[in-house]
Write a protein that binds this DNA or RNA. Sequence first.
RNA 1: GCCAGCGUAGCUCAGUGGUAGAGCAGCUGAUUCGUAAUCAGCAGGUCCAGGGUUCAAGUCCCUGCGCUGGCUCCA
Length: 637
Amino acid sequence: MPTIFYGEHMSQRTVTVDGKSISTDGSIIRDVVRDKRAVAARIDGRLVDLSTPLADGQDIATVPADSDEGVHIIRHSAAHVMAEAVKQLFPDAKPTIGPATEDGFYYDFDRGQSFTPEDLEKIEKKMEELVKADLPFIRKDMDRQEAAAFFREKGEPYKVEIIQDMDDEVCDVSLYEQGSFVDLCRGPHVPSTGYIKAFKLLSIAGAYWRGDEKNRMLQRIYGTAFGSPKDLKSYLNFLEEAKKRDHRKLGRELDLFMFSDDAGPGLVIYMPKGGRLRSLIEEFEKRLHFRRGYDIVYGPNILRGRLWEISGHMDNYKENMYFTELDSQLYGIKPMNCLSHIMIYKSKVRSYRDLPLRYFELGSVTRNEKSGVIHGLLRTRQFTQDDAHIFCRPDQLIEEITAIIDMVAEVMAVFGFSYDMEISTRPEQSMGSEEMWNMATQALKDALDKKGLPYDINEGDGAFYGPKIDVKIKDAIGRSWQCATIQCDFNLPERFDIHYVGSDGERHRPVMLHRVILGSIERFIGVLIEHFAGAFPVWISPVQAVVMNITDAQAGYAADVADRLRKSDVRIELDARNEKIGYKIREARQQKVPYMVITGDREKEEGTITVRERSGDQQTMTVDEFVKIVREAQPVV
RNA sequence: GCCAGCGUAGCUCAGUGGUAGAGCAGCUGAUUCGUAAUCAGCAGGUCCAGGGUUCAAGUCCCUGCGCUGGCUCCA
């Protein structure tokens, strides 16, 4: 192994640091970096340690602790410190991998036993000691074979496996040592453990080696670290905030939906207010689709097994499906809505003039989700999609895709979501020719390119019958959720042998688009709840206003106002209980009702109402004026 | 499905192997009040289910179910 003596050349050098030219007799980058917050540096776009030797004429950019890259490096270093702590406390734990993530870091260990919450505390304490000791991170470059031998001797088989699985052309690997711990690692790292000023261990979880469920389950410890204690604190606050917005908690508190152990896991039961919310969204969707040339259709929930064989579901989707038997015939409970729509298409001879045909269905689908993945409204075993299938000619394909992209944009604007898009390509489990897949994928790309919209590629994540554009919406606290998806399918038209008669009098094969805008209504409602923290916009609020009197003297007037509002389609509740107005307001606020309509003696005398908003602002007006305000909150689509 | 933790009143949660508890919500009564909780009383339990250990189990052990956090999978 070549040894570098950093102090070897004591000559003067001229380097550029963050755009400033510096003349130095120092030998490593750290010698010329004035910025105390610097944790690493960038040379020619490459991230390096501050201990990297200086070379004459180098252009150095420092990476501060509070930058995205800096935080990433701190987290990665924290993962190493955690591994050292674990090795000291539990010598039998074999380290595997420990990367930084978007909001923290983790390290996976192979160990006979699991870690307990008490272990977590011990590990955190030990980490604090290691940070206090301010141990330097020392990089060592090592020949690949030598490194493999080194880890084999240390009894760390996972590191050996990682080295052996590297590309053939890799000759040297780098190791980082701090204190008693050496890890295979590309780096860079902070100069010493003392740079890790704000960290916290969060949870223990199981994780498969290399993410494959056929492999051994490892013990993962999650933690997070930041450039400063202040940033760590604000992240922990953010987690608290997210907890308060949890749709499962709000769903119960606002009486929207429930789950019942007796009914079964992953099966949503809508309570009256949740039912109202859902029906409002569905009404909105029906209008939306009618106005854009869609037809509303309904298909059965179970279809013959034979049909699922033709569609390829039996070969590609069977493990997600439920089956039943009727008159000793096999039936599949639908996990998707496409088959009935294909039946509708097939029911007549179609002319090229008839296309595109757009069939829309608020279709409930049932999928056998593994027990461990079920999660409130966001992952259920039965859900309703705002599903549509568009049958079109190949020459109409791009136009139809772009129309859907526009529709997604309009709907997301109505709800106030921003979003990113990605294209998912052919998965391993799939059917059809390579040519079809290429055509379909190209069509999706062309449509996005034509609109000038940016997108990522998600290799191998398409549906089994075709590639898709996935829309990931971002909620109010920055988390992203998949809702809309647009799938391009050349497969099912062929399998069901559907066709249209072209202008040439010949039969031609149409193309099929599968698409959803909100995706699963359940999931979308879950995201809506968290996005608005339960304080829905007026137009979808299950209760838009609570009418309340101040004393029994205005009970009759309040009932009269309530009646007038109800007859004007304002969704109201009347709170005529013998309680103080402060108490009624408190309850309405907790229920996140947008308006409180207060009727005291003053209002009764003038024939008005006082309307209090969620913000606390209030105004006295007539019932008609208030009705107008509520009506105008309805979006036009 | 896998790993770990958890399961007590409608909700949030206390509970040392020895009589099942609190706050809020609910119900009843009093109070008639102007912008985030009026007072008093009452009622509320298969301690997730089944089995085991024990003189005795909410508490310890086993199995199942469910939930939570992850992993894999996904709208």
